[in-house]
Design a protein around this nucleic acid. Structure first.
Length: 424
RNA sequence: GGAGAGGUGGCUGAGUGGUUGAAAGCGGCGGUCUCGAAAACCGUUGGGGGUUCACGCCCUCCGCAGGUUCGAAUCCUGUCCUCUCCGCCA
């Protein structure tokens, strides 16, 4: 959410931001509602002031045992007047809230202008793409032949787009989670947190999933609760409503959680394998940062996520998302894409974003700084570090051998009892 | 699931219808003292909004949402959360 005052004073800037994002919002309706609201407010505050001062007078008169009935009668009508105006005010505020909630964040100046993903820019490529002297197999074929993945039976249990792992496959997924958490906690200084996987409506609203993207979520029946689509939601909400100390910045959390996404509108896309599932595991990185250096924090967050791929020796590239591809709440996003040999393409495995104060305003997360008056909104950032299922898939495809076996990356072996290879 | 207690400012904690935005203490900030620091003492210290060029003025906020009243932190209803006891349970 943007600040209402900022919106009022920077309409053309907001309009420009909407244009480069390819979004349309009725800003004229906002202007109209906003001036209407302020007119009502003026009237209400005047009446309230009157009520306050007369009430004080009534109190005095009662103390002196004087008759105040005529004043009380006057106030009766003032009060009912206020009550009516408050109704219109409420309606007006609601209308403004709705508009405000539908306005995306303003892209940072370093975000390339573009219409869609084809306008994203490649920041860098790391590692040569894996070479094969045969046509490399897709991870779903490898996984089923190795008897470590079973999408067929998973679909009996639930339905399409749910993964099931067996044996060394299940252990590999678990090893990846531990490995990622260990790197981030021990090498990068993040604090591990294991949050709830189900959250309420306000948590979802604070991080921006609601009200606009409810169709992407799984909602519990008879509860106002949702399955989390990412650990970003519960972890960012850890500090909702709090006033933090600037000395504590940056606050860094890492969390493993499963993630649940309805993937509405993606029917027919990535139907096979681990790339697009309704349920997947992810290790998330979340930072609360000082506004003055949140973009430096974004760079290190990105490096922290990249580190995992470097340790696993997987080739990848980093993308700067253009304005048209940027998520609703983000001001800037780097995607990390891992090389998938069977597809001959880089596929997203991490998304690292700075939300500036967009989420903090909704979640009311502020900080106080020594020597400064009042409070300011913090900047929130997060990134995948990494999507575990996609990392699993990338390992299978990049580490596959001609005989159908898969070598275990060295850094993972200690997590798997020293085994070096998964064979059929 | 049953019974009870409670939710007040950064924190602890007073306050049951009329200068209570809220006592007191702690913490924070500024100062006196000191070579410096500590202690002591003095002063100061919430958020949001409207309006104004500005000084300022005003409104609002005591978990949240309603209600009663001329007037509510204080009374009533609902709701959420926390705690205690009982029951059930991984």
């Amino acid at each position: 959410m943007l600040e209402i005052k900022f919106l009022r004073q920077n309409l053309s800037l907001i309009q420009k931001a909407l244009d480069v994002r390819g979004e349309t919002v009725d800003l004229d309706a906002f202007i109209k509602q906003d001036s209407e609201r302020r007119a009502i407010l003026l009237e209400i505050e005047d009446l309230r002031h009157q009520r306050n001062s007369v009430s004080e007078k009534i109190a005095q008169m009662k103390k002196n045992h004087e008759d105040a009935t005529s004043l009380i009668d006057d106030m009766r009508s003032v009060s009912s007047n206020i009550k009516n105006l408050e109704k219109s005010l409420g309606a007006s505020e609601e209308a403004i809230e709705t508009i405000l909630m539908g306005i995306p964040n303003i892209p940072h100046t370093s975000v390339p202008i573009g219409r869609n993903e084809s306008d994203n820019t490649v920041v860098k490529q790391v590692g040569a793409t894996t070479a094969f002297d045969y046509q490399p197999q897709a991870h779903w074929d490898l996984g089923e032949k190795l008897n470590i993945l079973d999408f067929t039976r998973a679909s009996k249990i639930t339905g399409a787009r749910f993964p099931m792992y067996y044996g060394t496959g299940a252990a590999l997924e678990r090893a990846l989670i531990s490995f990622m958490l260990d790197i981030h906690t021990k090498k990068h200084g993040y604090r591990e947190v294991l949050p709830p996987f189900i959250v309420n409506q306000s948590a979802m609203t604070n991080t921006g999933q609601l009200p606009k993207f409810e169709e992407d979520l799984f909602k519990l029946q008879n509860w106002d609760y949702f399955l989390i689509p990412t650990a970003e939601v519960p972890v960012t909400n850890i500090h909702q409503g709090e006033i933090l100390d600037a000395e504590s910045f940056p606050i860094k959390y890492t969390a493993f959680t499963p993630c649940f996404r309805s993937e509405a509108g993606s029917y027919g896309k990535d139907t096979r394998g681990l790339i697009r599932q309704h349920q997947f595991n992810k290790v998330e990185l979340v930072k609360f940062a000082h506004p003055d250096n949140s973009y430096d924090e974004l760079e290190t967050l990105l490096q922290n996520a990249e580190r995992i791929l470097q340790e696993l020796k997987l080739p990848y590239q980093v993308i700067n998302l253009c304005t048209g591809d940027l998520g609703f709440s983000a001001a800037k996003t780097y995607d990390i894409e891992v090389w998938m040999p069977a597809q001959g393409a880089y596929r997203e495995i991490s998304s690292c974003s700075n939300f500036e104060d967009f989420q903090a305003r909704r979640a009311n997360i502020r900080f106080r700084q020594k020597g400064h008056k009042g409070t300011r909104l913090v900047h929130t950032l997060n990134g995948s570090g990494l999507a575990v299922g996609r990392t699993f898939a990338a390992i299978l495809e990049n580490y596959q051998q001609a005989d159908g076996s898969v070598i275990i990356p060295e850094v993972l072996r200690s997590y798997l009892g020293g085994i070096e290879r998964i064979s059929p």
